[in-house]
Write a protein that binds this DNA or RNA. Structure first.
Length: 577
DNA sequence: GCCGTTTTCGGCCCGACTGTTTTCAGTCG
């Protein structure tokens, strides 16, 4: 069982937790958390790289020691330090750290009282033992008891589009702006962060806690407040004066790791960066706008989606920031369904809706026959739809409908339709809709085989993940990308908020590998194009520019790309990789 | 544990809110 970057990151987090319980040097603990973040956000599969005998690449914040531990974990599945630390504390004690209001100090106090798990904690709470513990008291004990009962230790995150339903009305109510991971367009958000400019912060906070959807006020101070909404999502408000707006927006947008980097840059220039501004001694030299904050530390403005401490500060310093894709750059959509399969509207209705959404072309890509429950199309019904599209095209103006298919990739990597019908279509989008649990090698082989088909233009939702429901299937993504590159196939970024697949890390990997990304709405109705903004958000998080995105190209260029004779049916490059 | 146009040693981002610790620690973002 090979360990992937996420597994290595999880072990580093565990080491950090256990070191924290051991009251170790906080900077050493931070080094492990930083390493977890760096490794977890890497597109390159470290274990695979090491298995090939390659050297570990130079990674920020990872020196000789942590590099050695990565090697040790990748090859043995664990490391000596972790085993030693695990021996020092009862198994499962780190789950207590996840409870809100519980940090290392309180876990140690609990441990002294032989409370070493969530179950122990609930039992001790029922017996009324908690308030007597050092540093607890009635209120703290109650808060922790409630959290333990509500299973709050299991961090609940909300899909971006779900969070939007709560976030945007509240932002309007507050007359404020959204910051945090929501503004950075992360695929899921843990809480909502709002910023309001006001010289009467108490008033703004009073209005905040009176919002009808507030279920519980978690904290209420003179400049900030936290509440839990009826939906269960936590909302944080920060109120600042006008002259601090940019600094506060920067601070509250994060990410935390990005902020730390910016503050360090400031420090090197003798400046202090906080949420009120950039300071030289007592004097504020910047802070009204985010641009002024970056300028003060010698950088151009950095887009929120890039602020993950993944090389954006270095790129900014060198003047090499990407010019990120924008929603308006999308010229068309290459993945949509109609009522012929499992959609809700006709081709005509979908085409008009796409036009209204500002698109110039739309590919209709129904499911293929294998997906019977979605009323997948067989060749006969495809021919019928092609005729329908031809007739429609004769009268439609301002929108071009392309004839496509979302063809199932079968277990052996062959496609669910014969070449004889695929070649009549403008494009075929290949997709996996079953057998998600193949072992990594077999799943990879299956996709590589599918890419050999000369008619496949786009690989849809390449990892099959459903956020919060289904993990991505096991896959050697690098091998798939390199093959897609050789075969001239684009990889989809499915913009549906349940998918967002490719994710941000994979988008950046695609860019690095020179693979085109197609942002598809997967619309199943006329209201389905609005999700493109989430797709663009992830694309931006993956550093994608207009040139990296297939459907940012004008129709004529797209047609040339689709029609080019480049895809031989035999992979001449096979054996060279 | 990392890192260096101040440094190979001595630093390491910064502030708010809560509760209980009577002067601030713990936690969080």
């Amino acid at each position: 069982m090979p360990l992937h970057n996420a597994d290595i990151a999880a072990l580093f987090e565990e080491i950090a937790d256990l070191l924290e319980l051991g009251d170790e040097n906080p900077f050493r603990i931070r080094a492990y958390r930083n390493a977890a973040r760096v490794v977890g956000g890497l597109s390159l599969d470290l274990a695979a790289k090491l298995a090939e005998g390659a050297e570990l690449p130079k990674l920020p914040g990872i020196g000789a020691d942590l590099g050695g531990k990565i090697r040790e974990i990748a090859t043995t599945g664990s490391c000596k330090l972790l085993e030693k630390l695990r021996g020092r504390f009862p198994a499962g004690i780190t789950e207590l750290l996840a409870l809100p209001g519980v940090g290392p100090k309180r876990v140690r106090a609990l441990h002294e009282a032989h409370i070493d798990s969530l179950e122990d904690l609930r039992r001790a709470a029922r017996a009324g033992k908690l308030p007597a513990l050092p540093g607890f008291g009635e209120k703290t004990a109650q808060r922790i008891t409630d959290a333990a009962q509500a299973q709050l230790g299991t961090t609940r995150r909300f899909k971006l589009a779900v969070a939007a339903q709560y976030a945007e009305p509240l932002a309007k109510y507050l007359d404020g702006v959204l910051a945090g991971s929501y503004r950075r367009m992360k695929d899921t958000v843990g809480d909502l962060d709002f910023l309001v400019v006001s010289d009467e912060p108490e008033k703004a906070i009073a209005r905040f806690v009176k919002y009808p959807e507030v279920r519980e006020v978690l904290a209420q101070g003179t400049t900030r407040s936290s509440v839990r909404l009826a939906s269960g999502i936590q909302a944080d408000l920060r109120v600042v004066p006008r002259q601090s707006y940019g600094a506060a927006l920067h601070y509250f947008t994060g990410s935390k790791a990005h902020n730390i980097e910016v503050r360090k840059l400031g420090q090197a220039r003798g400046l202090k960066v906080n949420e009120y501004g950039v300071w030289r001694g007592e004097r504020r030299i910047a802070g009204e706008t985010e641009e002024s904050v970056y300028a003060a530390v010698g950088l151009p403005y950095i887009e929120p989606e890039l602020r993950e401490a993944q090389g954006e500060l270095e790129a900014a310093r060198r003047g090499e920031l990407p010019r990120l894709l924008e929603l308006a750059d999308l010229r068309g959509d290459l993945h949509a369904h109609t009522s012929a399969s499992d959609g809700r509207n006709s081709v005509r209705e979908m085409a008009l809706a796409a036009k209204a959404a500002g698109l110039q072309y739309l590919a209709i890509t129904e499911h293929s026959r294998r997906l019977a429950m979605a009323r997948g199309l067989d060749p006969r019904r495809i021919e019928k739809q092609m005729a329908e599209i031809d007739a429609l095209s004769a009268e439609l103006r301002g929108i071009t409908v392309l004839k496509g298919i979302e063809v199932d990739i079968l277990e052996d990597g062959s496609l669910d339709l014969p070449d004889s019908i695929l070649q009549k279509l403008d494009l075929a989008v290949g997709a996996v809709h079953g057998k998600f649990n193949f072992p990594r090698a077999r799943q990879t082989e299956r996709l590589l085989a599918a890419l050999d088909n000369p008619h496949i233009s786009i690989l849809a939702h390449p990892t099959g993940r459903l956020i919060g429901e289904r993990e991505a299937y096991e896959l050697d993504m690098l091998a798939v990308m390199r093959k897609a590159k050789r075969r001239g196939v684009a990889l989809e970024l499915n913009a549906h908020p349940d998918r967002l697949d490719l994710n941000d890390v994979h988008c950046r990997m695609a860019k690095d590998e020179g693979v085109l990304v197609a942002i598809g709405s997967d619309a199943h109705g006329v209201d389905g194009f609005g999700v493109l903004r989430y797709g663009v958000g992830q694309a931006r998080r993956g550093w994608l520019e207009k040139k990296d995105v297939l459907n940012a190209r004008p129709l004529a260029e797209l047609r040339r790309w689709l029609a080019r004779p480049a895809r031989p049916s035999i992979d001449v490059a096979r054996g060279l990789s």
